[in-house]
Each structure stands twice: as structure tokens, then as C-alpha cells.
């Protein structure tokens, strides 16, 4: 692989990284804190790639180009690189994530991943501070699960909460679910709650529909277990657009 081709690939990776992190697409894949690093890496790759291409266009007589014959001179003793010196063929693979991001920009993980996660996990069950005053209290679904399951609902008693999640179809009906990521979508955890007392005539929305539920905790979903699914008695439910950051 020649150096200007390497430069071209570097530029493409840089451009797609900038594009993804310029807007909000990157939030489907990684946490918000990664953004400055992504922008910086994208810029660095773009510049490095551009310089490599400029090198090749300007002067091809200097010392950086005897690599092309390298693949054929493999028999020389003492210099038997498996890959050609300029770059390995595997570098072509860098185009795979580039095109995937450019063309389809895969959506945030949703009901399909949640349905494969048999546990109702929160990253680290821990004691949460008391709820702020005023009802309803907006909270993450993962916090709701922690409070209901790992604190046995103590802090939720008598309070009204607002939680947002997507529709996860189940055999009996549906659950409210949302994923939580630690670093990237490869390590997603699922939080789930079981809505009860739905308004009469309320039909189950299609999978992955985002909803905001206002309601209150009722006992009966089980406590202190990685598979307990807390109940959430619905007072009102509205369909919404997918939040900018789809993860908790």
C-alpha cells in the first residue's frame, strides 16, 4: 500500500470522526466526555493524511518512496517483512467503520439489546442521596431501579417520579427500558421497570418507541436481586422523540 493511499485513508477516518463528533451522533456510541478527544483525533488524522498526500503529489523522487517494490523484494535475507513496508493490506479495513458511519450511522442500541440482557442491572448499586423536594421528580431509569430494588423503595414512598425510556415488548405486554453505558455501547447494561395500571384502551406502542412516564412506585417487583423488575404505577404517559443522549 502506497503512502498517498495511507494518507487518503487517514483523511477519511479523520473526516468521519469529525463529522460524528461535531453533531450528536457520537452519543449513540460513546459517552459525552469523549467529544473533545474525538474532535482532536479527527483533526490530527486529517492533517497527517493531508500531509502524506501532499508529499506524494509534490515530490515523488525523495527517499520516502522505494516502498512500492518492497513486496517483490521479499526474498532478500534479513528483510522479510510479511507486509509491504508502506503499510499492510489490513489498512483497507479502516474503510469499514468509515463507510458504516458515513452511510448508515447505526442507531443507538435499543429493545433488541435489552431483550438479550436477562438481568436488570445497574452498573454499581449504591446508596443514592435523598430525592430533591417537589413532585414529580425527574430521574434516570437506572436510579429508579437502584432505589426500588436495592433500597427497597424507601426513598420512593409517597413520591411521584418522571422517567424516560423505550418500549421493550415482552410476552405479557411491555416494559419500560433504558440502557446505560460505561465507556461505549459494547458494555451496555439494561435497566427495566414494569408499568402497571395503564390508561384504559392504551395500546402497546411499537418496540423502541420512546415514552416519558409519570407515576409512582408500588411494591411487588422484588428487591435486592439482579433480576427483580420494579413496578411503576402509571399516572400519565406520553410518547416523545429519542433523547439526544439515548443512554442513562
Amino acid at each position: 500500500m502506497s503512502r498517498e493511499l495511507q494518507g487518503g485513508i487517514l483523511m477519511l477516518v479523520g473526516i468521519v470522526t469529525l463529522r460524528v463528533s461535531w453533531g450528536t451522533t457520537y452519543l449513540n456510541y460513546v459517552k459525552e466526555g469523549m467529544r473533545p478527544w474525538l474532535l482532536l483525533s479527527g483533526a490530527v488524522l486529517l492533517v497527517l493524511g493531508l500531509l502524506a498526500v501532499i508529499d506524494a503529489v509534490r515530490g515523488r523522487g525523495d527517499e520516502d518512496d522505494p516502498q512500492d517494490s518492497e513486496g517483490e523484494s521479499e526474498g532478500e535475507p534479513g528483510d522479510g517483512h510479511v507486509h509491504a513496508h508502506g503499510g499492510p493490506r489490513t489498512a483497507w479495513l479502516l474503510l469499514l467503520p468509515v463507510f458504516t458511519l458515513f452511510v448508515v450511522a447505526p442507531p443507538a442500541l435499543g429493545a433488541y439489546s435489552a431483550s438479550r440482557d436477562v438481568t436488570n442491572s445497574v452498573a454499581a448499586p449504591q446508596l443514592l442521596p435523598p430525592l430533591p423536594p417537589g413532585d414529580p421528580v425527574p430521574m434516570y431509569l437506572s436510579d429508579y431501579v437502584t432505589r426500588a430494588v436495592w433500597e427497597k423503595g424507601v426513598s420512593l414512598e409517597g413520591r411521584t417520579v418522571t422517567v424516560t425510556g423505550f418500549v421493550l415488548p415482552t410476552q405479557q405486554g411491555w416494559q419500560l427500558a433504558r440502557l446505560q453505558i460505561l465507556c461505549c455501547a459494547a458494555d451496555a447494561f439494561t435497566s427495566k421497570a414494569q408499568p402497571t395500571n395503564l390508561p384504559a384502551g392504551f395500546a402497546r406502542p411499537p418496540a423502541d418507541t420512546w415514552v416519558t412516564v409519570t407515576g409512582h412506585w408500588v411494591p411487588g417487583g422484588g428487591t435486592e436481586s439482579g433480576t427483580a423488575i420494579p413496578l411503576l404505577e402509571v399516572e400519565s404517559i406520553v410518547e416523545i422523540e429519542q433523547p439526544v443522549n439515548p443512554y442513562d
Binding site: T17, V30, P106, A108, L109, C184, A185
Partner: peptide, 11 residues
Amino acid sequence: TIFVSIFVQAL
């Protein structure tokens, strides 16, 4: 999604 996530995170 998982594929590009690992890539974007590692980049």
C-alpha cells in the same frame, strides 16, 4: 452499533 462504538471509543 457495537462495532463502530468500539472503534470510536478506541480511536
